[in-house]
């Protein structure tokens, strides 16, 4: 379970250039939810995702990720939590282009003390097969198509078997057909029990998620669950 209570996020806090990116966010996301976060540019979507992903910390408020109350931890512990609990997928893929698919997928395992070097090959192969790129392992990322790159990023996101997968505009750099294929993958992962949070400005993509949270100027202005919407009808 992910829980944010009264979360504020300021950039450049108490400086001339201060930005109030998130304002009093109260939000609970249960395990296994499939959430889209939408909103115009600058509304605070990425900021929210970074806080959930322990890449950044809230200025005020409480943030609980599963069993962890993250405000209590230092950067090293947050790294550990990130490593074990969270998989990231980014718009620009966040891969190292001059490395092979194999190497790119290996990084979360390399930083996970619980994983032995001997296990690497098997785990990487399994994640890659899962994302249908098992035959591309020794290709350089720069030689892949956009869809293949995003599948590599997905393989990397799941290789440590995290419970939560966070995606920031995962389909923005892809054509429509490929974007929908990637969404199929997210759906499949969600069916397998993973919590998925996707930031997007594409309403078609958001429509495929089970819950849509809309941000505007750092505040939640809409939070609708598909099931709930159906109930209301």
């Amino acid at each position: 379970m992910i829980e944010l209570a009264g979360v504020d996020k300021y950039y450049n806090y108490k400086m001339d250039t201060q930005v109030h990116a998130l304002k009093n966010i109260n939000l609970t996301i249960e395990d296994g939810e499939f959430v889209a976060v939408i909103g115009v540019s600058g509304s605070g979507k990425s900021t929210l995702l970074h806080i959930i992903g322990c890449l950044d910390t809230p200025t005020n408020g409480k943030f609980i990720l599963g069993e962890y109350e993250t405000a209590k931890y230092d950067e090293n512990t947050l790294s550990e939590i990130r490593n074990e609990e969270i998989g990231f997928v980014l718009q620009n893929f966040g891969l190292l282009p001059d490395k092979t698919v194999y190497e790119n997928i290996s990084y979360p395992l390399l930083f996970n003390p619980a994983v032995k070097y001997k296990m690497l090959r098997k785990l990487i192969k399994k994640a890659a097969d899962d994302m249908l790129i098992g035959d591309l392992l020794h290709k350089k990322v720069s030689e892949l198509s956009g869809g293949q790159k995003q599948r590599t990023a997905l393989a990397r996101a799941i290789v440590n078997r995290p419970d939560v997968i966070l995606a920031d505009e995962p389909t923005a750099a892809l054509d429509k057909k490929t974007a929908f294929e990637i969404m199929d993958v997210f759906e499949r992962l969600n069916e397998a029990g993973k919590t998925i949070i996707i930031v997007t400005h594409d309403r078609n993509i958001a429509a495929r998620c089970k819950r849509v949270i809309e941000l505007a100027d750092g505040e939640i202005v809409r939070d609708s669950k598909k099931g709930a919407a159906k109930l209301q009808q």
């Binding site: 090293n76 790294s79 550990e80 969270i86 980014l90 891969l95 190292l96 990084y107 930083f111 996970n112």
Partner: peptide, 19 residues
């Protein structure tokens, strides 16, 4: 550049500061 992007990717993948 390559160094910074390497380290940013490592951080994303859960590398600790000391690593």
């Amino acid at each position: 550049d390559s160094n910074i992007s390497n380290m940013a990717v490592f951080r994303l993948c859960g590398a600790k500061v000391k690593t």
